[in-house]
Simulated assay, not measured.
Amino acid sequence: MTDSAHSTLPLPDYDHLPLGGLESRIRSLSSDEVETLLAYERAHAHRVPVVELLGTRLDRLRAGAEPTSGDPGAVRPEQGGHRTGSPVSPATSPQPMSPPPHGTPDQRGRPKGNRT
């Protein structure tokens, strides 16, 4: 498939969907549409979990499963605004401490000028 095939995929944001979002959104696709995605995936990224997911869905559709509405709230990369990063703040940070001296992790370290 060429890049023009990318624009005709049944899920326009397919390349950016995480596995969890893809799993939910392919439920609404027909077997032909799943076959299109599977061929595209094999020709491009060939991610094993995605190939297995699409293959399993295709098998179910061929066995008589019907497309459903899928989960409209599935993870979508176009729905930005999710906060990322560490939730650590000064209020949740531990108290500062000196690292322990080598060999005795149960004792706090002392500054070099304070040794006797």
Rank of each mutant, 00 (worst) to 15 (best):
R42C: 04
A91D: 15
G70P: 05
T104E: 07
G81W: 06
Y40V: 01
L19H: 13
S24D: 14
P77M: 02
S93C: 15
K112C: 05
H46I: 02
A63D: 10
R27G: 13
D15C: 09
R57H: 13
P94M: 05
T68G: 15
V48R: 12
V51H: 03
V48L: 14
D71S: 08
P111E: 12
L9A: 05
P18Q: 01
G80M: 05
T2R: 11
D13R: 07
T104I: 09
Y14T: 03
G80D: 07
P96L: 11
A43R: 07
L58V: 01
V50D: 00
V48P: 05
Q107M: 14
R42T: 03
R25C: 02
A65D: 14
V51D: 03
G20D: 15
D3N: 10
A43T: 12
P87M: 08
S4M: 14
P105I: 06
R27V: 01
A43L: 12
A63Y: 04
T104C: 10
H44F: 01
A45Q: 12
H82K: 11
G20V: 14
P67C: 03
L17V: 04
P18A: 03
R42P: 00
H44C: 12
S30Y: 00
T104D: 13
A74I: 08
G73W: 06
S89Q: 13
L11M: 07
P12K: 08
R60Q: 14
H46D: 14
T8N: 12
G73N: 13
H44Q: 10
H16L: 10
S98M: 13
L58M: 05
V88W: 11
L17N: 01
L9R: 03
N114V: 11
P111M: 13
A65V: 10
P100D: 01
S86Q: 06
V88Q: 15
G109H: 08
M1I: 07
L17P: 06
P12F: 06
P111A: 14
Q107K: 13
V75T: 15
L22Q: 01
R42V: 05
G21I: 04
G81N: 10
A74F: 02
Q107H: 09
P111T: 08
L11Q: 07
N114M: 15
P96E: 05
G85E: 04
G55V: 03
S31M: 07
D3F: 09
M97P: 00
D15P: 02
G55Y: 05
P111W: 14
M1F: 10
E33M: 03
G20L: 11
T56P: 00
V48S: 09
P10C: 03
R27D: 06
G70H: 00
L58R: 01
Q95H: 15
P18V: 04
L17G: 02
L58W: 00
V88N: 06
T116V: 11
H16D: 13
R60I: 00
S31Y: 08
R62C: 04
A45G: 01
A91N: 05
G85P: 02
V34G: 00
S69C: 07
D71E: 11
P111I: 04
A65Q: 15
R25Q: 13
R27S: 09
S93T: 15
T36N: 03
P111K: 13
G20N: 12
R57A: 01
S69F: 02
A45D: 05
E41M: 06
H6D: 10
L22W: 00
P18N: 04
T92Q: 12
P18R: 00
R83E: 11
